[in-house]
């Protein structure tokens, strides 16, 4: 996978950048699903601040609370206890709902269920039309969203004939046309083939770098998580680990305990170190691994 590694290197820098300008803040967030076993809340006290312009990967074992958490970010769910703020607005104020839904755009797993129209550009226009915008403003937004997502040449195609990667880029285009500040993706690449995943990850990197978009992505692909600036690991409805990828993935045993794995090059480096080779910590990519190995011999 292409490598867009980060600029923020230490936990302190990360924390400072976050606190200075948080766009999403969760404070003591607790959520109990209706009918779920008492004493096992899906979220069990989450404190988390996501900085403006940050690219955060949210990972964790099945049932750890990732989807429940991100649904709080656009008020699809409201906290049982604690609070969630989006761009300074509390999600439990009904008067804030509209603004919050415009601030945070969501993309989900299944690319087949997300398009609503017969033609790609109509699909992208659906959201802005519902905002009641003027036709030329809608036109402008649709064009822009199609350009950013690289779907310009498909504007007159039928959505169901697009490839998986294109369908997910279309879903993202539809969200971008709403001009959100934050893009939340819940396993948006999990049904795609590697090429489709790479398309989507490339698009996220571009949105992050060029448009300064805040990105929160839930994923089970550790190689994808390694591309983010920050990795938050959930476990049992709480934040278990929160740090930059090279440090998170340096602790192979801890990640296994948390139901996860580390990217392949990190796993190899770990095994080689166990067998006595001296490799530095923080090896994450194939290139870094090959480089370090060649330095050894």
């Amino acid at each position: 996978m292409t490598n867009f590694r980060l600029d923020i290197k230490t936990r302190q820098q990360l924390a400072a950048a976050t606190v200075r300008d948080a766009v999403i803040v969760a404070e003591g967030l607790v959520y109990e699903h209706d009918g779920a076993a008492a004493g096992h809340p899906a979220l069990d006290g989450v404190d988390l601040a996501i900085g403006r312009g940050q690219w955060v990967a949210l990972v964790g074992r099945n049932g750890s609370g990732k989807s429940t958490l991100v649904k709080h970010f656009n008020a699809l769910l409201l906290p049982t206890a604690g609070r969630c703020w989006v761009d300074g607005l509390s999600t439990d104020g009904p008067e804030n709902l509209w603004t919050i839904r415009c601030t945070v755009g969501m993309v989900f797993q299944n690319p087949d269920n997300q398009s609503v129209a017969a033609v790609v550009e109509e699909d992208v226009a659906f959201g802005p039309e519902n905002l009641g915008l003027a036709p030329d403003e809608i036109r402008r937004r649709v064009d822009e969203a199609l350009t950013v997502t690289g779907l310009g040449e498909y504007r007159h195609h039928a959505p169901h004939l697009l490839s998986g990667g294109q369908k997910q880029r279309l879903a993202i285009a539809g969200v971008l046309a709403m001009r959100p500040q934050v893009l939340v993706l819940d396993e948006a690449t999990s049904m795609l083939d590697p090429q489709g995943r790479e398309e989507v990850m490339g698009l996220l990197a571009r949105l992050h770098r060029q448009e300064r978009m805040t990105i929160v992505m839930v994923t089970h692909f550790m190689a994808e998580a390694a591309l983010a600036q920050r990795v938050v690991v959930m476990d049992g409805g709480r934040v278990a680990v929160d740090d930059c990828p090279d440090r998170v993935f340096a602790d192979v045993l801890r990640m296994r305990e948390l139901g996860l794995a580390v990217p392949l090059p990190a796993e190899l480096a770990f095994r080689l170190r166990q067998q006595g080779l001296t490799l530095p910590a923080g090896v994450l990519t194939e290139k870094e691994l090959v480089g370090e190995l060649c330095r050894l011999s």
Partner: peptide, 9 residues
């Protein structure tokens, strides 16, 4: 798809 890495393995 959708399984956590440890579960998958």
């Amino acid at each position: 798809a959708g399984l956590d890495p440890a579960g998958r393995r």
